[in-house]
Design a protein around this nucleic acid. Sequence first.
DNA 1: AGACTTAATTTACAATGTGTAAGATAATCA
DNA 2: TGATTATCTTACACATTGTAAATTAAGTCT
Lengths: 199, 199
Amino acid sequence: MTDPAKPRVDPRVLRTRQLLKDALIDLLQEMDLEKISVNRIAERATINRVTFYLHYRDIPDMLEKMADDMVEDIRRVWNQSEANDRTPEQTESRMLVHLLEHIAAHSKFYKIVLGSKRTPIFTERLLKMLSESIALRIERSGSDLAFTKSGTPKDIAIWYGSAALIGTIVAWVRNDMPYSPAFLAKHFAIMTKTNDAVE
Amino acid sequence: MTDPAKPRVDPRVLRTRQLLKDALIDLLQEMDLEKISVNRIAERATINRVTFYLHYRDIPDMLEKMADDMVEDIRRVWNQSEANDRTPEQTESRMLVHLLEHIAAHSKFYKIVLGSKRTPIFTERLLKMLSESIALRIERSGSDLAFTKSGTPKDIAIWYGSAALIGTIVAWVRNDMPYSPAFLAKHFAIMTKTNDAVE
DNA sequence: AGACTTAATTTACAATGTGTAAGATAATCA
DNA sequence: TGATTATCTTACACATTGTAAATTAAGTCT
């Protein structure tokens, strides 16, 4: 149930890392990534600059670890609804709703990391993670053939589908989430499903 | 016919800028953007470092200007086929074929700027440019309503469609273009068109 | 061809950022 | 409380940045 490797981290470490992460998010809201130095992050976090290097190799390394955390969060949310026994379509739609609700609940964070044009690591990770889901979905729908029902190679369908999913989510976030998660998920399902219905 | 503003640029300027751009593309092939300094670019270009600042404010500025050039190129290729008088679908498909052929013809460049995970400026610009086309296309197909035939708000359809287009192109480039431009364009059209056919 | 104009080079400098080290201080753990 | 570990302080060598001034080289124009 619980994580087998639970090293019981020193609360000082947790505090420091949280302060550093918050500071970086804060700064990304104010300026481009290129203008952000370890100096600035440490200053904003009220942490000594040297301490930064006790936790991260450099700023890209810090972003990578933050992206790891994000993927872990999202994977949990995404899979939480997978245990359902309804139709696949309903499950998929509910998964997307949960994901969108999670993003909305942490909109400050996601608006920065997915909305910013200079931190593609987060979008890339999300793309990679969700691509696997899309791939499974497409594999399943087309049995064991290499092509979909409409004769399109599966990898093209996967490229298309996962890009559409990520892109829709990112655009939704960038436009300050003007639709409810349920509404967006519904219409996403409509646009996607019509493709599969082709003979 | 010809550009009205034709300032007749000094060949030394053209040479220097080309050397700098080539050097940057070269370096991006070898290392991440964060590791690239003005020093390195100048050195690789066999240009004095100070000269760099006569042309670009800094590296992000240089990338932006290179992205400008790319968009200009692509817009030319994209619009070259627009003057045709066939059906819209045929024109669209031909536009995409021409675009993919152009990308294939300069695959070294595009593989780096679209494929690299650290230079999102190029992808962003491409997304912005092609989104306008997609928007026009969707506006046209749905007359003057705010929704598509399937009841989806047009902006959602635009997010979906343009992300699918860019994402498919980028994935195609990243995977070393395993399909011919005509083939990919055909199947892209199939996947897109089936959506519009919904009543 | 020679005079004019503009680009590129050279050298230099101040300021900032990077990454690491050693020892002192403070918070946590057992 | 005593031992452990994280953080802080100070320091240092080095790379990078952006700009300035004077010089050299290349291109332009009549």
